[in-house]
Write a protein that binds this DNA or RNA. Structure first.
Lengths: 207, 207
DNA sequence: TAGTAACGGAACGTTCCGTCTCGTTAAAGG
DNA sequence: CCTTTAACGAGACGGAACGTTCCGTTACTA
């Protein structure tokens, strides 16, 4: 039986620990947020529900997370744990591997938070700014793949590293937003990495 | 001065035209929905606000559009008017052209509805189903580009047409969702159409 | 020791939800 | 012709969540 939102029993009441932030309160609130999304879905995620389950006052929530979006973002950052990207030996294999990692992560109940963050960011400028920062950080991390490919002299030189990273992210996000996390990561990687046209008069493999 | 939501003056009261749907009512409601989103943003878009501006009863709204998402979708379909895709002579040029068309369309105040439809679909199963139908329709329409490229014997054969269409859509949607509708369509097209790696062992002009 | 700020809790007014009645209107159908 | 049917504007209704504001308690800080 899933835990109810109403503060029934086993957790003892928390109190102020003086004129400073209580880490136990922060943890309880973020955990409650993650649990609610995982158990009941985003529709049941409200500031009131989080406060009830965490046995926290609404004022405490609003003191540290001014909007629902901010709390969502914090909850996502707390639970996310994506390790480094495996080295498969080819760019196409690396791209497939990172897509597979992302799809598996987002398919978990807590991972589903992320698509709701993107959704909420469409009407919340502050959240949009936070998401943009996170997005740039993830884009930068994808350059690892490109650097490895460059070291192997695998690249054609027709496309820049940042452009490649954006394309990978675009494919990942599209499949997240349309709920197709069972998509064929290898097929997507092939679509991106190999050219669609037979012969481009590009300046060839840069030496 | 933007029109207020409150039904002040100039529109005369509509009545029932008998035991059948009133087209004027439908038009007034959809127009009100489009105007509210364009003028005030999605945050001010509510069933109540639409009913107020359209001088319609809430029951009338719910009779024809059972959810907010359904009304959003109908409003988008009413105002969208994307013509055919221009033929630029190359696949890369065609992809750039379609991206430019989409970006320009979505950058208009009414076009912004679409990103909110994608957002709302994350928490509304009915809307998600409607969006999925629309998405497949747009994917099919993109095969025109691929067919033209095939007729020119431009394709490498390494990537299938549906995969190409999905990749184009992914890039378009990403830039929509992150608010980068000023992106370089030509650069994106190049990223997709040309290969990232120098030499693929596909049936092409291997060196 | 006095000041300060976080804490749980609860009440507040507001907005929007979706449902529901009401009286009016006019087409549909026997 | 005249009863039936259904759409219409209007708005009351209970419920949920919003974001703010108090309260009394707690314990660190100066």
């Amino acid at each position: 039986m899933p835990k109810s939102d109403d503060p029934s029993a086993p957790e003892e009441k928390r109190h102020s620990i003086g004129a400073r932030r209580n880490p136990a309160t922060e943890a309880a609130i973020l955990d409650a947020a993650i649990e609610i999304v995982a158990e009941k879905g985003i529709a049941r995620f409200s500031m009131e529900a989080v406060a009830r389950r965490a046995r926290a006052g609404k004022a405490t929530l609003y003191r540290w997370w001014p909007t629902r979006g901010a709390l969502l973002m914090a909850a996502y950052e707390r639970q996310k744990q994506i390790g480094g990207y495996p080295d498969t030996g080819t760019l196409e294999g690396d791209v497939a591997a990172v897509l597979r990692l992302l799809f598996d992560h987002w398919a978990r109940p807590e991972g589903a938070i992320f698509r709701h963050i993107i959704a909420a960011a469409q009407s919340d400028a502050d959240l949009a700014a936070a998401l943009e920062g996170y997005r740039r950080e993830r884009l930068d991390s994808l350059t690892v793949l490109v650097d490895r490919a460059a070291a192997r002299r695998e690249l054609s030189g027709a496309v820049s590293g940042p452009d490649m990273a954006r394309a990978i992210m675009a494919m990942a996000w599209l499949h997240l937003m349309v709920g197709r996390l069972d998509a064929d990561a290898e097929g997507i990687a092939r679509t991106l990495v190999r050219g669609w046209v037979a012969d481009t008069p590009s300046p060839g493999p840069a030496v």
